[in-house]
């Protein structure tokens, strides 16, 4: 047995495999050390546990603003905090996220942490980002927001196929794989002229071809029926910890509908829906692109949201 193992270790190709594994491990460790410097988004993700812990103290009133780049660009935590004195506000808005990421984030950073208690969680969304049919990125889940223990029931975190599970596990184990989009974009932004412009044009063309932002890939001929079972479960878990959940329909340039089933959740699960798809004073000049607000737009929307939140929190107490 030992002689067989020795022969195996001496074999040339085994040395190649071990050298490759060592190189992969080294790169991975190096990447873990510097990843928060790779992009603003990764730096933000790294600070999330601290942000939540600082704001979500059980002894004070606290509010968590959760969302993606729509909320990041659209809502100012200082404006909200200014209108709601005595409430500590945390703003957690990692890029490109949706229901599945938010679920893992809330489960592991808020619900499971005894030292953390939020009175209110406000989630900014658009389109069908809160539905079970929201697009899922297993790499992002595995690498950034979920834990291996979540794999005990893959469907509850939106992993449908063996391929999804493979991607989740690889991203959880291999940082290079989990952060590949960031690495790729950073690399091409420096080396390829016009990379950002033409990549965004390509994305817009796909969106123009009927692909709605945030929706999972589906047969274009088949209408998608949106359901909210996962989100309802999340709302229940937050409520059982004494947290009120408010969802905010965020403004974007093209109109979208709020699903009737989401509105129904408002009555069955004591969920509050604030509709800010149209806000007085907001117009096309307040957008930097099809969906993201500029600083002036952020001020207008934040004031409108703060007023609605004040009324809502007052009625709740």
């Amino acid at each position: 047995m030992i002689s067989r193992l020795g022969a195996l270790l001496r074999a040339t190709e085994t040395r190649v495999v071990f050298a490759l594994l060592a190189a992969i491990a080294l790169v991975d460790i190096g990447l873990r050390l510097v990843e928060s410097r790779l992009s603003g988004n990764l730096a933000h993700i790294a600070e999330i546990p601290g942000l939540i812990e600082a704001a979500g103290r059980p002894e004070s009133h606290s509010l968590l603003l959760l969302g993606n780049s729509l909320t990041h660009n659209g809502v100012s935590a200082s404006v909200i905090g200014g209108v709601l004195p005595g409430v500590s506000v945390a703003k957690v808005t990692p890029d490109g996220t949706g229901l599945w990421d938010w679920q893992c984030l809330l489960d592991h950073q808020v619900i499971e942490r005894r030292e953390v208690q939020f009175d209110t969680v406000v989630i900014g969304f658009a389109w069908h980002l809160l539905s079970d049919q929201a697009r899922n990125d297993p790499s992002r889940l595995g690498g950034l927001y979920c834990r291996m223990s979540d794999l005990a029931n893959p469907r509850t975190i939106g992993l449908e196929t063996g391929g999804d599970i493979g991607e989740f596990v690889t991203a959880a184990v291999l940082r290079t794989y989990a952060l590949r989009d960031t690495l790729r974009n950073r690399f091409f932004q420096r080396l390829v002229p016009g990379y950002e412009t033409f990549t965004q044009a390509g994305n817009s063309a796909r969106a123009g071809a009927g692909e709605q932002p945030g929706d999972a890939a589906h047969d274009p001929g088949e209408p998608v029926v949106h359901s909210y079972r996962t989100f309802a479960g999340l709302v229940d878990r937050l409520r059982s910890k004494g947290t009120q959940v408010i969802v905010v329909a965020m403004p974007v340039q093209a109109a979208y509908e709020i699903d009737p089933e989401l509105r129904e959740l408002a009555t069955t699960h004591s969920l509050t829906v604030i509709d800010l798809r149209k806000v007085e004073g907001l117009n096309g000049s307040h957008y930097v692109d099809e969906m993201h607000l500029n600083r002036a737009g952020q001020q207008i929307l934040s004031k409108a949201l703060a007023a609605d939140l004040r009324a809502e929190l007052a009625s709740a107490t």
């Binding site: 190649v16 050298a19 190189a23 790169v27 290079t176 690495l183 790729r184």
Partner: peptide, 20 residues
């Protein structure tokens, strides 16, 4: 030589992992 093979395979793996 082994080191050249490791470099080449490392390149293949890096490209497949980072640039899918």
């Amino acid at each position: 030589p082994v080191w050249q093979r490791v470099a080449l395979y490392g390149y293949f793996i890096a490209m497949v992992v980072v640039f899918p």
